[in-house]
């Protein structure tokens, strides 16, 4: 039977073509295409790049260290005032990295709000393609919540869906080829905050369900459990494992994309790498984080 090509597939193919074109235009690693305004004149030319791989990695992953080594002043910011403001708050050491992280988080939040408003405005009886996608995400996750926690605790669904969508968009946003765009989950602070939040919700739920003493007696009872200190370390290790998994996967993908692309002079290969690490691994890790946060709650309240 002949299937009609879905619009998602068309967008996908268009995306691949655009990215391939971008990759070809940007040329070899030693050359760099410069497009933009220079001294009021429009320039479009190939310039010899002064980067080697080491500098490039430093610039990509340790931006503050990069500007400290080169001694340049950071110039990509719209207004210097905002930068000075952040410098005063966070100190000189990580001002640029923090500024970039907060900017990316703001972009992700605006994106999510925009998508939500757009979808809400155009809710249809016969749903459009994006509406089907988001409804599918919601119903699948709701089914998982009901299967794990039971029907009476289905009110956890909005939290779980929000967690999934936030991490998903965070992992996707690094693929947009604009200078300075990066995945916010590449910075350790974002996964660590999400992990702390998830484990805090687990314990608050357990306190609500089992009562204060009913929950705490698992941890502070030297008679029943002589190694109770290690249990507390085990609880802390939940935070570490859930957050470092996301962080390591996203950072690893970014490093592999950068290094392999520079080895093959940015020809064709990065498209596949972006597909694999950006879309595939990004989606899987967002799902794993969400499922782990859900199952921690389920295990804690079921006993």
């Amino acid at each position: 039977m002949a299937k009609k090509k879905s619009p998602i597939l068309k967008i996908f193919i268009l995306f691949i073509i655009i990215e391939t074109a971008l990759v070809f235009v940007s040329g070899g690693f030693n050359k760099q295409l410069q497009i933009g305004l220079d001294d009021g004149k429009f320039v479009f030319r190939n310039i010899q790049s002064h980067y080697d791989l080491q500098e490039r990695i430093t610039e990509e992953f340790q931006i503050d260290e990069h500007y400290r080594q080169t001694g340049e002043t950071p110039e990509i910011y719209g207004s210097n005032k905002t930068y000075e403001f952040f410098k005063n708050i966070f100190g000189k050491a990580t001002a640029i990295g923090t500024f970039q992280l907060l900017r990316m988080l703001l972009i992700v939040d605006i994106m999510l709000l925009f998508i939500a408003l757009l979808i809400k405005k155009r809710l249809l009886k016969r749903p459009s393609q994006p509406q089907i996608l988001f409804e599918m995400i919601y119903t699948t996750l709701e089914q998982f919540v009901i299967e794990t926690l039971g029907k009476e605790r289905a009110h956890f669904t909005p939290y779980i869906v929000t967690l999934f969508l936030f991490i998903w968009v965070c992992n996707m946003v690094g693929m947009i080829p604009i200078p300075g765009f990066m995945e916010p989950t590449r910075n350790l602070n974002v996964p660590l905050g999400l992990g702390l939040f998830a484990v805090a919700i687990v314990h608050i739920t357990a306190l609500k369900v089992k009562g204060v003493w009913g929950h705490l007696k698992n941890y502070v009872n030297p008679v029943k459990n002589p190694l109770f200190l290690l249990d507390i370390i085990g609880e802390l290790s939940k935070v570490v494992s859930i957050s470092f998994r996301l962080f390591g996967n996203v950072l690893g993908g970014a490093i592999i994309i950068l290094v392999v692309s520079s080895l093959v002079s940015y020809v064709v290969f990065p498209v596949g790498l972006n597909l694999f690490f950006g879309m595939f691994v990004g989606t899987i890790q967002a799902f794993v984080f969400t499922m782990l946060a859900l199952t921690y709650i389920g295990v804690e309240i079921s006993e």
Binding site: G248, L251, G252, I255, F276, V281, I284, V288
Partner: peptide, 13 residues
């Protein structure tokens, strides 16, 4: 397969 390669990616990092 993609999820089982996490540890290998960590080693590469």
């Amino acid at each position: 397969q993609a999820a089982s390669q996490t540890a290998g990616i960590f080693a590469l990092v």
